[in-house]
Structure formats: structure tokens, C-alpha cells
């Protein structure tokens, strides 16, 4: 099979992985613009969400709630319930972590906050490893057959359609939240000018809490969807995706959640399509090269505004 004929199929993979990266990228972007630092723990927050989901699935099975697959999907309502609960629990965990860690560093510089986030990343990964071990855990054991997509030479699994559709729904939800709700507008206002937000009377503590809720909730969903796509999860799951997410966020324009979405989808597609021409082992390098080129050519990113 020549490189060119593989491209439609790789595009499909790229859109799936880009959708997952984008859900992680929104949180990275919001944390950067509202709290003012690059959160290196975001990948491990995704892993935390995935493992909380795994724990809930185990719990459901233990109490005898068998999950029957929903239509053509390889999972059922129990799995979706676990995902929703995991998103909520991860959001709650982020609020607690903010109280214990980041709140004490609110007036520290971005480097200190970034260092703290690296510490949190290592902490979370090791807590996960302590409870679940370093070995892979199967998320979904069922084998699913990919069906041909009409019109193009590519196949897609029902689960992958679910991933793409869910990502679109969540992105639309985030857009509506930022555009039309009072808290969403306050988040944009604080991202614009935190000092003015404070003198205006905007409750910046609440804005920060919402930032963690949205970022953490979406990270959990991204982690779980990565588990759906890969079938298994490891404690390294999020950390391995973090470089691609950062590349996407920078490509789109750091601090702009819409840019993060576009950038992450582009990175996802580029990484997959690159495998038609170069070894799969170079996937992270592709993200890295795109990130460096963007920083050299247009450091503000696709949608970034000038400083």
C-alpha cells in the first residue's frame, strides 16, 4: 500500500486523536490565560480521570450492574454514567488541589506555578501507579470492526464516531458557556485583564474554581476517550499526550481556547498522516517540529492576538 492511498484512513485516525487532544487543550488554554501558567499536570489530570472512570466501572461490575452495549457501540449506559461521574469527581479533585497547592501560589510568578504543576504531575502519576499499578488496564475488551465510510477509502469504528461527536458537542457546550453565560464572560474578562476584573468586582476566586471545573472535567473525558480509542490505559496515558496538547495549544494561539481546539486537531492529523511517510516512532517529533516552527514564524499562533 503506497503512502498516498493510506492518507484518507490516517486522516480519520487524526481527527479522532485530534478530538481527544482538543478536549485536553481547552483546559491547558484556560489555565494559561486565567491562572497565568502552563499546567504540566494537565496530562496527568486526564489520566486521573481515566482511572477514576476505571474504578467506577469496576464498582458497577462489583455491585452487579452489567453494562449492555448501546447499539453499535462497544460500551453502554453504565460506561457513559461512569464517564459523567468521573468528570465530576475529577473537577472536584481539581478544586481541592487548587485549594491545597495553587491557591497558596496565587501571587507567585509563572515559573514557580509551572514548577508546582510539574510536581503535581509526578504526584498524580505516582498516586495512580500506587493504586492501580504500572501495568495496562483494559478499558474495553470487546473487539469492534471498523466499517467503510461511504465515498472515501477509509474505515471508522462506531466508538470513534462517538468520540468525534462527543468532542464536537462538548466544544459547542464550552463555546456557549463562554459566550452566553455570566460566568463564561467573566472567565474571558479575567483572561483579558485580571487586575481590572478584580477592581470591577468580579469574583475572581469563583472564576478560578470554574476554570478548574471545566478544565478538569474535560480532561477526565479526554482521558476516558483515549482509553476507549486505545482499549487500555496506563499511568503514562496523559503525560504521553501532553507534548501534543502543548504543541496544539501553541499552534492555535496560547490562551485562546478556540485556537487550542483548532491547533490540537491539526496536531492530531499531522501526527497520524506523518506515519504514511516516516516511522510511527517520530509522532511526538512531528508535534515538536510544528510547535518550534510556529514559535519561529508566528509566536502568537493561528488565533493568538499580539501582545
Amino acid at each position: 500500500m503506497s503512502a498516498i492511498t493510506q492518507i484518507p484512513q490516517l486522516l480519520v485516525y487524526g481527527i479522532v486523536s485530534g478530538s481527544i487532544l482538543a478536549l485536553g487543550g481547552i483546559g491547558v488554554s484556560l489555565t494559561y490565560s486565567i491562572l497565568g501558567f502552563s499546567n504540566f499536570a494537565h496530562g496527568d489530570i486526564m489520566a486521573l480521570g481515566a482511572y477514576i472512570g476505571l474504578g467506577l466501572l469496576g464498582l458497577f461490575t462489583a455491585v452487579g450492574l452489567a453494562d449492555t452495549p448501546l447499539g453499535p457501540l462497544s460500551f453502554g449506559p453504565g460506561f457513559i454514567l461512569a464517564m459523567v461521574l468521573a468528570a465530576g469527581l475529577t473537577a472536584a479533585a481539581m478544586i481541592i488541589i487548587d485549594r491545597l497547592l495553587f491557591r497558596k501560589l496565587r501571587h507567585a510568578g509563572p515559573i514557580i506555578l509551572m514548577m508546582a504543576s510539574i510536581g503535581l504531575a509526578l504526584g498524580l502519576r505516582n498516586v495512580i501507579q500506587f493504586f492501580w499499578g504500572p501495568q495496562p488496564h483494559y478499558y474495553i475488551a470487546r473487539i469492534q470492526v471498523a466499517v467503510p465510510i461511504p465515498g472515501i477509502d477509509a474505515r471508522i469504528k462506531s466508538d470513534e464516531v462517538f468520540i468525534i461527536v462527543l468532542a464536537i458537542v462538548l466544544v459547542a457546550g464550552v463555546h456557549a458557556f463562554l459566550r452566553y453565560t455570566k460566568m463564561g464572560k467573566a472567565m474571558r474578562a479575567m483572561a483579558d485583564n485580571a487586575a481590572l476584573a478584580r477592581v470591577t468586582g468580579i469574583n475572581t476566586d469563583r472564576v478560578i474554581a470554574w476554570t478548574w471545573v471545566i478544565g478538569g472535567g474535560l480532561a477526565a473525558v479526554a482521558g476516558i476517550l483515549a482509553g476507549v480509542e486505545n482499549k487500555f490505559i496506563t499511568p503514562q496515558l496523559g503525560w504521553q499526550m501532553l507534548l501534543s496538547i502543548f504543541a496544539g495549544v501553541i499552534l492555535g494561539g496560547i490562551g485562546n481556547p478556540y485556537g487550542a481546539i483548532i491547533g490540537c486537531v491539526i496536531i492530531g492529523i499531522s501526527e497520524e498522516v506523518s506515519t504514511a511517510f516516516i516511522s510511527t516512532g517520530y509522532k511526538p517529533a512531528v508535534a515538536f517540529v510544528i510547535m518550534i516552527l510556529m514559535l519561529l514564524v508566528r509566536p502568537t499562533g493561528i488565533l493568538g492576538r499580539k501582545a
Binding site: K182, K185, A186, R188, A189, A191, D192, N193, A195, L196, A197, V199, T200, G201, I202, N203, R305
Partner: peptide, 25 residues
């Protein structure tokens, strides 16, 4: 109320949204 000399608006928000933010509380 206080209007700083510089950076006294939310640039990515619309006029209406800036006013709404003024009424946040």
C-alpha cells in the same frame, strides 16, 4: 468606582459584555 489610566477595558469582550462585567456583583 475606579477607571485606571491604561488597560481599563476588556479588549476581547464586546461593548455590551464590558458593561455587563461592570455589573457583575
Amino acid at each position: 468606582a475606579y477607571v485606571p489610566q491604561v488597560e481599563n477595558i476588556f479588549p476581547s469582550l464586546t461593548v455590551q459584555e464590558n458593561l455587563e462585567m461592570g455589573a457583575f456583583i
